[in-house]
Design a protein around this nucleic acid. Sequence first.
DNA 1: CGTTGTCTTGAATTACATCAAGAAAAGTGG
DNA 2: CCACTTTTCTTGATGTAATTCAAGACAACG
Lengths: 243, 243
Amino acid sequence: MPINCKNCPLRRHELFATMSSDDVAFMQDMKQGEQHVAPGTVVFSQGDKPDHLYTVLEGKGLRHKTLPDGRRQVVNFVMPGDFIGLQAGVMGEMRHAVEATTAMTLCIFNRSDLWKVFQNNPSRAYDLTYLAAIEEHLLGDALSRMGQHGARERVAWSLHRLYRRDVAIGAVAGDGSISLPFRQQDLADALGLSLVHTNKTLAQLKAENVARWERRRLFVHQPETLAQIGLVEQLQPETRPLM
Amino acid sequence: MPINCKNCPLRRHELFATMSSDDVAFMQDMKQGEQHVAPGTVVFSQGDKPDHLYTVLEGKGLRHKTLPDGRRQVVNFVMPGDFIGLQAGVMGEMRHAVEATTAMTLCIFNRSDLWKVFQNNPSRAYDLTYLAAIEEHLLGDALSRMGQHGARERVAWSLHRLYRRDVAIGAVAGDGSISLPFRQQDLADALGLSLVHTNKTLAQLKAENVARWERRRLFVHQPETLAQIGLVEQLQPETRPLM
DNA sequence: CGTTGTCTTGAATTACATCAAGAAAAGTGG
DNA sequence: CCACTTTTCTTGATGTAATTCAAGACAACG
C-alpha cells in the first residue's frame, strides 16, 4: 500500500519547501507507485536512458561516475527526499550511476510525464529547475573543497554535511547517531583520497573525540568542532523542493 | 544597436539547439537590451541577488567561489553562449561570482521575467532546466577529474575542453589558436593545483609539442594527443540550449 | 622607463599515495 | 550455532607528486 502524497512523512520536515495542495494532488496523480530495492541494487547505470524517475522515500545510496580509465568518483550521497534521474530525464541519458546502499523505497514517476509538468504545472516545473540548481550548487561546493583543502578539512566537511542533512529530516537515533551505511572506500572515492589516508584521518577525528564512525553509524560528538575543522560557514537553513 | 535574436550569430552554430521561431520571438520580447562590460568587471558577486540575468554574447570570463578561509576555486570558465545568473534567479542568490576577463557583451533579461517563462513558455522553461542539468554534469565531470587524476591529466583535460568549446562556436583563428585570456593562476585555481606546478605541467606539454599557451592564446598542435593525455572519452557532439 | 603583474625555474618540504600484512567484522553454508 | 570465506578496516613503512619557498626574467602598463 503506497503512501499517499498528502500524508508523505517527508513533507513534514522543514528541509522541504511547502507545497500547495494543488501541487500535492498533481504529484499524487503522477505517482506511478512505489518500488522497493535491495541493498546493492543499481538503480541507474551510467549511460542509461531510463523510463522512470524517482523520489527517494527511504534508504541511502551513492551517485558515482566511472571514468574512462576505470577509476570511480562518488559524486554525491543519496538521501531520502532526493529526486533521482532528472539529469537523464532532461538530457536523455544518465551521466552517473545511482546505487542503493541500503534497502530503498522509491516513489515512481514516468519520464514521459516530465514534459507534462512543464506544460501543465509551472510551479512544479520551477521546482525541477530549483532542484537542478541546488545540485549544481552542491557540486560546486564539493569541487571547491576538493580543490582547495586538505584531507582533514575534506573529511570533516563531508561528515558534517551528511550529519546536517540527517538532522534536518529528523533521522537521528536516540544515541545521537545517524545511519551512514557506506564503506570508508566510498568516502575516499567521494573526496578523492586514498582509502588508507581516509582511514587515518577518520582515526584522528575519533581520537580527538570529534566524531566516530563505526558499524555503519556516525556519532558526532562535537558538531561545531567538526564544522570548524571542515570550514563550514554559518549557513541559513536551506529548503529544497520535494518531488 | 542591439542584435536582434533572430539574427543572433551564436544561433548558427551546431553547438546550440535549434529554437522554434516562436521561441525566438519570445526571447526577443524578454530581451531588455545589451550591456558591455570592461575586462575585470565583476558581473555577479558571491551572495548577490541580482535583478538581471545574462546570456554571454561575446567575451570570456570566470566563475569562482571564495571559500570561508579566503582561498579561491574557479568553478568554470564562462564562454559565449553561456547563460549566467540562473542559480541566483532560481535559488535567490549567487553562490559564486562571475567576472569578465575580457570585454564582454551581455544580453540582458529581467530576473522577474523568469517566472513568466515558466508560466507562458514550457519549452523555454524546459531548456532552463536543461541548462542547469548540463551545468551539473560539467561540474560532476570536473569533480571526477580533480578527485581521480594527476596534474598532467587535469591540465590536458581542461585545455582540451576549452579548445573543443571554441572550435564548436567557430572561434578559431587562422593560425589554429583560440583565445584563452586567463592567467596560469586561474587555471591553477580551477584545477586545484599550485601556480608553480601548473606552470611546470604546461611547460611539459609545450616541450612535447602538444599544446602551447602564451600571450593569452592557446595553440593545440596535437588535439587528440591532448585528448589522450586528458583521458577524454569519445563524446558525441553535445548541443545545449541558448537563452 | 620605471613599476607592477605574470611567468619561469630550481631547491626544500610535505601531504598524500602506494605497498604490505594483519585484525576485525560481516557474510555463507553446513 | 559454529567453521570458513570474504570483505572491510587498521596500522606501519616507503615512495612520490605536488606544495611551498625563493628569486630572477619577462611582459604589460601607465
